[in-house]
């Protein structure tokens, strides 16, 4: 059984190259990702994953920043990623879509 993991790239991105690796396989790469300040959203991608545990790694190559997140997916999940200069990549995982205005 597969479930979608929606990854939202939110505040703090500017001309970044974002690479998402799931279980050591690159599943997403996007260059020039920049947050639109009027919504706080830079971009989004959906990844289909088999139910169960997975290890995600998100790299920002220009900023030389990465973070690893362990998830256990058994229903659609939504991952919000935010870059904070002093803290690095922060994430928030939830069961409902993120909202923007």
């Amino acid at each position: 059984m597969t479930y979608p993991l929606t990854v939202d790239f939110r505040d703090g991105f500017y001309n970044d190259t974002i690479v998402v690796v799931v279980d050591e396989v690159e599943v997403y790469r996007q260059e020039n990702v920049t947050t639109r300040t009027m919504t706080g959203l830079a971009g989004s991608t959906e990844i289909l994953l088999d139910s169960g545990k997975h290890m995600l790694r998100i790299n920002l190559s220009e900023k030389e920043v990465s973070t690893s997140i362990s998830i256990d997916i058994n229903s659609p999940l939504y991952l919000g990623l935010e870059y904070i200069p002093q803290k690095g990549l922060e994430n928030k995982l939830q069961g409902e879509p993120f909202k923007y205005m």
């Binding site: 639109r36 009027m38 993120f98 923007y100 205005m101």
Partner: peptide, 13 residues
């Protein structure tokens, strides 16, 4: 176009 998750936008930049 972004779908249900966008309630409104000041689109004019």
């Amino acid at each position: 176009d972004n779908g249900n998750g966008l309630g409104g936008v000041m689109f004019d930049d």
